[in-house]
Write a protein that binds this DNA or RNA. Sequence first.
DNA 1: GATGAATGAGACTTCATTCAT
DNA 2: GATGAATGAAGTCTCATTCAT
Lengths: 213, 213, 213, 213
Amino acid sequence: MTSARRPGVKRVRAAPARRAANAIGPRARRGAPEDTRARLVAAAAEQFEVSGYHGTDSNRIARAAGYAPGTFYKHFADKTEAFLAVYEQWIARQWDKLALIASDHIDQRTKAERMANLVVAHHRAWPGLRSSLRELVAISPAVRQAHRESRRRQMTLMAQLGLDDASRSALLVLQVERIADAIADGELRELGIPDKEALGWLISLIEKRLQPG
Amino acid sequence: MTSARRPGVKRVRAAPARRAANAIGPRARRGAPEDTRARLVAAAAEQFEVSGYHGTDSNRIARAAGYAPGTFYKHFADKTEAFLAVYEQWIARQWDKLALIASDHIDQRTKAERMANLVVAHHRAWPGLRSSLRELVAISPAVRQAHRESRRRQMTLMAQLGLDDASRSALLVLQVERIADAIADGELRELGIPDKEALGWLISLIEKRLQPG
Amino acid sequence: MTSARRPGVKRVRAAPARRAANAIGPRARRGAPEDTRARLVAAAAEQFEVSGYHGTDSNRIARAAGYAPGTFYKHFADKTEAFLAVYEQWIARQWDKLALIASDHIDQRTKAERMANLVVAHHRAWPGLRSSLRELVAISPAVRQAHRESRRRQMTLMAQLGLDDASRSALLVLQVERIADAIADGELRELGIPDKEALGWLISLIEKRLQPG
Amino acid sequence: MTSARRPGVKRVRAAPARRAANAIGPRARRGAPEDTRARLVAAAAEQFEVSGYHGTDSNRIARAAGYAPGTFYKHFADKTEAFLAVYEQWIARQWDKLALIASDHIDQRTKAERMANLVVAHHRAWPGLRSSLRELVAISPAVRQAHRESRRRQMTLMAQLGLDDASRSALLVLQVERIADAIADGELRELGIPDKEALGWLISLIEKRLQPG
DNA sequence: GATGAATGAGACTTCATTCAT
DNA sequence: GATGAATGAAGTCTCATTCAT
């Protein structure tokens, strides 16, 4: 499941795919704009994941989604906006699932386990996306702002999950995110720490916060 | 009917101007290659820090160092190689200072404080560099490998500082680095955690590891 | 202390001017890709002819055809590919005309005369192209291979023209080509041999082959 | 002895050879200027042969000869001049040997054989050089002029060898050169004509001219 | 005479973005 | 709404040539 990355910073991409009508993705149907947009976002997510933000070009995203280059710009003002859309979908999906687990009637320990596993799986599936996000947060004001807003929403959600101490919640979010990234990147493994150990650490962090007290 | 040809094979180039019109940096002195390289590395560090890896171009680095574009490529095979050089210098400087503190005859608490402050200061001074590094580690095999090797050297150093548990040392390095990044990025501040608190956390992490036991 | 960053990821590009200031060729019409390609090939042929392969740059070819630099690379992977296209068109045109003459109901002598004149005229019109071709055949595997394949097709054509002895046909092709080149280059003239004499030689070479027996 | 060529027009050269003191060739001794020049010419011949005129850079020639880049320009005004020097040496050597054979007291047939073999061997040893020459003759006035002068000298030599019909001598030179090139290039082989047959043709061409009659 | 660090014009190529159809 | 041909600024890298030492 580890995604293929381009071998260097130098462009070495999948061959430009010069198919007949240069159709790359599934044949696009003329249809509801939301569908088109959804297909574009999905294609963008995949391309960003595989090649990174800078290694992905908007024409390829469009083609991968089954559209022509122009269509991309009918739905996004520019490439950054597409990245933002991808990020928002990514994070929304994670929090939807987290909320679902939170609302389950199971014991705190199991909840913590499921949450930790969910987050780690989510990060592991999109390491390239995560890494592009971190870079863009540092470099693009638009992405940075979106990131902040997303964080704020997370805080609200955590409050709804019953965590009243904002400062500690913040710390939790940050720690969980960072550790999940490290697991996904394989950094911990390389340092001799088995994923299981790191996961255990994650679980206990979450559990501690879940139990009011 | 014989077609006109260009006057010769010689490309008529303007004689290398005494002083480039678009020179940006300080006048370059002709000198030892190490000096030139050092100036280029310094300029590259600054440019990468300010504009990120992808936002920096090699010509600008050269000009900022006071040289012409070609000079850059006399010292680095490509932009990645220059980034690597910057990274290596960055990390070497940090660890030199850390080693110095470690060898000081002061109590553990003070040592931990100084170390934490040093690392945080170092990260705070170069947040853009850090962020580019993280992206390149994810995308460029060359950078990833260099990063790994650097980590291995750090482990060796930590062992020399008297930390015998490799696994825990690894965890320490990772945690410290991540927290320092978070402080430098302002992520913690944004989440309502004052830098001071995070710094305190860092110090206690280090201190715990310093005291054998 | 947070360092200044560039305003965004978006590279602020000037909007594509309605009509490029440095447009050289005729106004390009948006149209069928084949037309664009044809114009590019024609422009490339002219440029290669005038300045030689190494003296021609792809941007100039594009501009001469009435397009922007990028358009060139929509149609050719690189400069070599463009050269190949030019060569193929060049040779196809010659052989089309030769086949036409061959199918004429005229006596052998007249046929030989027309063929010789045609070939010489064709070489005389493109001496620079011929000379670049010879260099590239020696240096570029791609061009060399194309050249060989073209030769093979010529052999087939000659067989269709009624020449059954392959080895002698081969010799004929080579001799004709070489002599035509020499006439076009003016080498023979410089050595005191009038073009007419060389042409006569060419004609008799062809005539001898045309008459079975 | 067939020389390796670069795989395409795209630069793919032997690795830049970053040896310690970037010495590539034999250690150069400070000595008579003629020796230095001779070494440079020899190195240039080899480089041009292997990489072609445009694929060879003057710095590499200098290094290959054991000198620094600047030294190259102490001996040649530019790259073309170096190529000219190589060409002149190449042709002088051939004609020296031809003159030697001519003055031998052997029968005409043996003379013709030796001459043909000599010329073919000479061309076979330097196909890359020949091919660069042909291109430069077409493109560079300086090389073209040198080529013409060399031809004129050849005519004089042929007259001294006892060939009084200038026009026929000219034709002989041209034919011999062209056929030798074709053999060296492997063009005839590719067309199914064994080198031996072509060589036989060459011999009889020469023999016919040698015998006054 | 030799050195070699430095030069800088310019070649090739990419890709985000536009707009006429 | 979709298309896709076209755009052109800009980035990476090369190499013939110079000149201070």
